[in-house]
Design a protein around this nucleic acid. Structure first.
Lengths: 338, 338
DNA sequence: TTGTAAGCGTTATCAG
DNA sequence: CTGATAACGCTTACAA
């Protein structure tokens, strides 16, 4: 077993004190002779010295770490989100620790505590298994900043969100422009705030266009996964009057594709489908998925920026970022001819 | 700002010494009176005491952390792998820190160093941007155990792998059973060891069946992504004699689907497609993707098990796990009638 | 049954 | 320009 090289070893090798080494290595060594400086720097590389993280953080009280809680890394939406976060984190010399909580409140709480234990500086929470209140209860006493996004948005504090309400509007308007009047909505079996806004936008536009929420709209709730979408089709086909379906996210749309295909129902000729998210995969399905695109990577980046800014300047005034969404009309929706 | 409660505060409140508190909280307090024990335990909850992670690890020399390096979290193969790792990690009270290196050697090295800095106990590396030698060079002096899997397998040391060679054989045999004689292989533009084995198995079976590697097989190299598969089609269609295509992973197959569809080439009637990996998405595409299924979650679990076992018992003898693969014949392959 | 004190590897203060 | 020395919060011999 090789003992780790410590600052002591390095100081000894350089024939200086640990103070000297520490200062030089931390960029505070202007006052030392160029000679000493070079000697230390070289030795550091040569001896492969890496400062001990724990010792360092113990005294610095910062682990240069942020935590990220998502419901499901398997969903491309979240893996793209993570990419955005990772980019900004890296630029700021922060490390993100990512947990996928699988919509399991128990697990989520467990991870939350682990993260607190590690004294992360901040947290980005995109998962809503546990409520904002509980999160606050755990995080606040430990002075950990956090940002709730996507599933877990709230009104107060720093906010980074996409315009879900408008996204819902766009989706409805698109279907209505195509003369659809009987529409199915495939929604989550546990609605979070962002999803509620999304639906609200959708429904408001429907109402404005004389589409009756009671008689013209079919709502089907299911888990927000490919399988959930797939299973929702069983219910969907019980409503033959429906000519278009809005799925609350792209992953469910993919499930719907499969369900319809297995029943020989053609998209878009028998049934138009519009999704939500704008994941890369949508373009690879046949027909290419019409959807509402969120700027996912951007959402990740902005979230990280806002959080880190808060971490670095606790007193900065409330930050609000609103990102636009857009309709991406592709092949899965078409004119209603019935 | 709320100061964190330390073991000292707790000891003071309990009217005992820190030793007492420490011992009791670490389950080594049998020797103390039930009374003291209860007092300390209660106070811990009451005062919301959480041991300082850094201080603790500094002395324990273990951060109960493993690092995981994958090329791309966006690829479902890796997100499933991560799920498996996370499950076992959690069971063992370990935290996985996951990095997606994007096939960028620079980035990979950066993350590797960050991980070393944090004195992780072990590392699972499924990414091959940098070589095993460099990895060894960085990790060994720091006494960090690691396990190379998937892209980055080697012959020596602990090994967890799926039977790539056999997988390649299965794929070839399947196509040959369907009477395909002119076959395209869409492969990675940077072949890693596991992929080489995969190809070797494929080619060996071809040879055994009088298929000439020179004249009957077309090889197209492209990045291992959806887009890479998509772009490979441009080259693929230059070979109209080809009746079947083997893509080295499922994600590329998805890209091929799109490329062929845009050219009105029907799968499987004009061209059979077989992928590799067995990601969940394969079943959601139309036609459902025929593929070679690797036990991905299992691969993640076993990897974590083997690594953690190595971490806990450095002297245990070399561990080898070989996981089976299987052909999943679905709809994207059919008899060759040409 | 309990407490004292040393030490983990680092940074920061302050005196040379 | 440089180096003792304290301090961070914890665990663990070793005493009592």
């Amino acid at each position: 077993m090789v003992r780790k090289v410590t600052i002591n070893d390095l100081a000894q090798a350089a024939g200086t004190s640990v103070t000297t080494v520490s200062q030089i290595l931390n960029g505070k060594g202007d006052r030392f002779s160029a000679d000493t400086r070079k000697r230390v720097l070289n030795l550091k590389v040569e001896m492969n010295y890496v400062p001990d993280f724990n010792a360092r953080n113990l005294i610095m009280k910062s682990a240069q770490t942020i935590g990220v809680l998502v419901p499901n890394v398997g969903n491309p939406f979240f893996s793209e989100l993570i990419k955005g976060i990772q980019t900004i984190a890296r630029e700021n010399q922060f490390i993100p620790i990512i947990f996928s909580s699988n919509h399991d409140a128990e697990l989520e709480k467990y991870y939350l505590e682990k993260l607190v234990e590690r004294s992360v500086s901040g947290l980005i929470i995109a998962s809503a298994a546990i409520t904002a209140e509980v999160i606050d209860e755990i995080l606040n006493p430990n002075n950990i900043k956090y940002l709730l996004i996507d599933e877990n948005t709230v009104e107060a504090g720093d906010t980074v969100q996409t315009d879900d309400y408008h996204g819902g509007q766009l989706a409805a308007q698109h279907l209505i422009d195509l003369h659809h009047k009987k529409i199915a909505m495939i929604i989550s079996d546990s609605l979070t705030n962002n999803l509620r806004r999304r639906l609200q936008g959708f429904e408001d536009v429907c109402i404005k266009n004389d589409i009756d929420l009671k008689t013209d709209i079919v709502k089907i709730a299911s888990p927000m996964t490919k399988r959930g979408g797939y299973e929702a089709v069983t219910e969907l086909v019980k409503h033959p009057e429906v000519t278009a379906v809005f799925t609350i996210n792209d992953e469910m749309a993919v499930g719907v594709y499969r369900g319809l295909r297995e029943r020989k129902i053609d998209i878009p000729n028998d049934l138009s489908v519009i999704g939500y998210d704008g994941i890369e995969w949508g373009e690879y399905f046949s027909p290419k998925l019409t959807t509402i695109r969120q700027p996912i990577i951007e959402l990740g980046k902005k979230s990280a920026e806002v959080l880190l800014n808060r971490v670095n300047n606790p007193k900065v005034k409330t930050q609000t970022v609103n990102l636009p969404v857009e309709l991406v009309a592709r092949e899965s929706t078409t004119q209603n001819t019935k």
